[in-house]
Write a protein that binds this DNA or RNA. Structure first.
Length: 787
DNA sequence: TACACCCAAATTTTT
DNA sequence: TTTGGGTGTA
């Protein structure tokens, strides 16, 4: 099992039972080490499969882990605590919903649901949504939760923040009332549960002897605390991560957790995996050289036995159009030479860049796949169907109620809903309960809808889950609505797919033959098991309430001690949780061999034979919004590091001198990151121009690639005298570039962060230190250039 | 209730 | 330039 590993991997896998930090570089076999470690612990009887917990961030990597584990060892991975932070917390909360203060049928809001709930709250409470945009409120609430803060814990130093805290409190109350939890709440609740409930905490602390964490650099503060709390009973945390691949700080990820973990837990017990099995030398050395410019890092240097390979190709084109065209020509050549399309990836910093490349590929008739955008369970028709299903499980879920109360249209307009929510607010009822308080025609329509919901809830006790969904699609009117719709065919197709997904889910989770709304008898509630333990000194209402699975029988081979994934959940509830926690595939056209298009973020964890990194320009990559703080620039650099290390054999960096952005042509310098990679690793297919010179905005003709590709290393596109110089705008006697410092009489000092237009018509976006960001016409505004 | 129109905003987004 | 959301009109 471990013979095929390199010495560092072996020592990581066979580390003694202590906390350890594995710094695993890109392509160093991180997942392999993690799964082999698990298998090794089990095989050497240092842990039972049930004494292990493995935590990841994505469902995909959790699945991958289980697949590899079962390939290594003949064990039944079902029931093992391998999953995402959110998935495991969900499991914990389902098992102990009473102790966590949640209703048994609590439902999970995804980001969109949460936003809808916040919007509704802001409207209902009469809060000014110009001053408190729902998105900002959402970010505030999630940010607080990710720091482990309840409304009372948040530091509110001014009136604005005090109001935000108030809204947070209102939101929380609304969630409680409706029996829903958002993503961050799953984590925070689970954390608080463990923290406050000693018997439960000690139970899990005793149970899990080894906790393995993947992508540790992406953990947020709350996740870190959750992990260390679970491990406080003597468990060992085996944390695997790469600080150089931390690219989610903007979502609350705290790279500092790695350094903290090393200092506080894994002191001296750090292993570096630096041998890379993915890329050739020039690619790796480029990545190494680039990332060396970051100050805040633990330090690591990738190497390979594969040889240096080809240099990294760099191409500069006058416009984004030509950049795209060049890429498409090159892709065509690669395919012609036998490359598989799926082994070619085009990466970009922001989604807006994909359009022009898609256009080119489409015109060229090259199949491609775009990652990103809507996922299966996020599609409107699927969400509608799910909303009906949720109402079946919990009719007091106002978010779902409002989503479908009048979809398809059933004569319940804004006025009626106004009356309904007034009544609900007055009585402190859910919308469902408030229905009888609305009179008139609208009230009658509401009553009919409420009946429909109850009727369908009744069916849930009889029909299997797929049957129920079919029933819902039919009787809700979704079916006829989309049938009548001109382009409803695809939506119907997705609804059909939803039924299939449910059927697959039922089979997978052993729910076959069970009515959708019934909790299976083999489901185990962990709370009674805990009560039997002597540690549960305090009387627990759980034992007597009896609202649990009627027969807390133990499935063969399982024990209450081991727990079970589907704790106390009906197929319906389990499927709804599944739909929230795993939004499904994130790619447009599935299937055939196609060129892969995605953002750099989306590419993390993937690898390709050939990679194009596009838009390698200052202001775009690194993104202008990140330039203002050092930490931002370092994250951009890590992002570039991630991008580079996706390539196995061939890497292209492409850039355009001008680019259509927001309907305006903007000019940019090549990315500063290009200048951080030594020339010896780069091969400029177009001449490398000086970075500081100023160019006239007239193109002396587009550079074409020629057939550089077919003679890749011949140097046939030898550097000539640059025909043009790069970037910047000249107005009068002044030269403006991105990064130029300026002073304005009224706004004070600032920095140019974007330029557009030419000559007297040129405009500059300037980030002023005091006055914020302004767009100024350079021909009009009086600007002095400062050092 | 549906559609047309206008305006503002436009990194990245594992759950 | 494109997109989404909000408002106004048939």
């Amino acid at each position: 099992m471990i013979d095929s590993l390199n010495p560092e991997q072996q020592s990581a896998v066979t580390l003694p039972a202590q906390h350890a930090l594995v710094l695993a570089g890109a392509g160093s076999g991180k997942t392999r080490v993690l799964t082999t470690r698990m298998a090794w612990l089990i095989q050497t009887h240092q842990a039972s499969p049930y004494g292990l917990m493995a935590v990841t961030f994505t469902n995909k990597s959790a699945r991958e882990m289980l697949t590899r584990l079962t390939a290594l060892l003949p064990i039944n991975a079902r029931g093992m605590w391998v999953g995402t932070f959110h998935g495991l917390c969900n499991r914990l909360l389902r098992a102990h919903y009473r102790d966590a203060g949640l209703p048994q049928t609590f439902q999970i809001l995804d980001s969109a649901d949460q936003l809808a709930a916040i919007k509704r709250l802001i409207k209902g409470a009469g809060i000014d949504d110009d001053k408190f945009p729902p998105r900002d409120v959402q970010r505030f609430i999630n940010g607080a939760k990710e720091e482990g803060q309840r409304p009372g814990d948040v530091d509110a130093w001014d009136a604005y923040r005090r109001r935000l805290v108030e809204i947070y409190g209102l939101y929380q109350a609304q969630c409680e009332r409706e029996g829903v939890v958002d993503f961050a709440e799953l984590l925070l609740r689970a954390y608080e549960l463990l923290q406050r409930n000693a018997p439960i905490r000690e139970h899990y602390q005793r149970r899990f002897r080894h906790i393995l964490v993947d992508e540790f650099q992406d953990t947020n503060s709350l996740q870190y605390r959750w992990l260390t709390l679970l491990a406080a009973g003597g468990a060992c945390i085996f944390a695997v991560g790469d600080d150089d691949q931390s690219i989610y700080a903007f979502r609350g990820a705290n790279v500092g957790n790695m350094a903290d973990f090393e200092r506080d837990y894994a002191r001296g017990n750090v292993i570096r995996l630096e041998q890379n099995y993915r890329s050739y030398g020039h690619i790796l050395d480029s990545a190494n050289a680039l990332i060396a410019h970051n100050a805040a890092r633990l330090g690591k240097n990738l190497w390979t036995e594969q040889g240096e390979g080809e240099p990294v190709r760099v191409i500069e084109q006058p416009s984004d159009q030509l950049e795209a065209q060049w890429i498409i020509d090159e892709i065509r050549a690669l395919i012609h030479d036998g490359s598989e399309r799926r082994e070619i990836a085009v990466l970009y910093r922001s989604n807006a860049q994909s359009r022009i490349i898609e256009h080119g590929l489409f015109s060229a008739g090259i199949p491609y796949k775009v990652y990103g955008g809507l996922r299966f369970f996020e599609r409107q028709e699927v969400k509608h169907a799910l909303a009906y299903l949720r109402l079946m499980d919990n009719p007091h879920d106002d978010t779902s109620w409002l989503r479908v109360v009048n979809f398809p249209a059933r004569g319940i307009g804004a006025r009626t809903l106004e009356q309904l929510s007034d009544a609900a607010r007055q009585q402190d009822f859910s919308l469902f309960r408030a229905v009888p308080f609305v009179a008139g025609k609208g009230g009658a329509n509401l009553a009919r809808f409420a009946d429909l919901v109850q009727q369908m809830a009744h069916e849930a006790q009889v029909l299997s889950l797929p049957e129920l969904i079919e029933h819902v699609i039919h009787h809700s009117g979704l079916l006829s609505h989309y049938q009548a719709d001109r382009d409803g065919a695809e939506r119907l197709e997705n609804l059909r797919e939803l039924v299939n997904a449910a059927a697959a889910f039922v089979a997978e989770e052993n729910f076959e033959g069970l009515p959708a709304g019934r909790i299976p008898e083999w489901a185990i509630d962990l709370s009674p098991a805990l009560d039997r333990s002597p540690a549960a000194a305090t009387p627990d209402p759980v034992a007597s309430s009896g609202a649990v699975a009627q027969t807390p029988a133990v499935a063969p081979g399982d024990s209450a001690e081991n727990g079970f994934p589907g704790v106390s959940m009906s197929p319906l509830a389990a499927f709804l949780a599944h739909a929230s926690l795993e939004a499904g595939d994130n790619q447009a056209q599935a299937g055939q061999d196609a060129v892969q298009l995605m953002t750099v973020h989306a590419a993390k964890g993937l690898e390709f034979d050939a990679v194009f990194i596009t838009g390698v320009e200052d202001g775009l990559f690194p993104h202008e919004n990140s330039l203002l703080e050092a930490a931002g620039l370092e994250e951009e650099r890590r992002l570039m590091y991630v991008a580079i290390t996706r390539a196995r054999a061939r890497l292209y960096l492409t850039l355009a001198q001008s680019r259509m952005l927001h309907g305006q042509t903007r000019y940019a310098l090549r990315s500063r990151f290009l200048d951080e990679i030594p020339d010896e690793h780069l091969k400029w297919l177009t001449p490398k121009a000086g970075r500081t010179s100023v160019r006239e905005n007239t193109w002396s003709g587009a550079f074409r690639r020629g057939d550089a590709y077919n003679r890749p290393d011949s140097g046939s596109v030898a550097p000539r005298e640059p025909r043009y110089q790069t970037s910047g705008v000249v107005v009068g006697d002044k030269q403006f570039r991105i990064g130029t410092g300026v002073r304005h009489a009224k706004f004070g000092e600032g920095t140019v962060i974007a330029l557009s237009g030419t000559g007297e018509d040129a405009q500059a976006r300037i980030q002023f230190r005091e006055a914020g960001t302004k767009t100024l016409a350079l021909g009009i505004a009086r600007l002095d250039i400062v050092a």
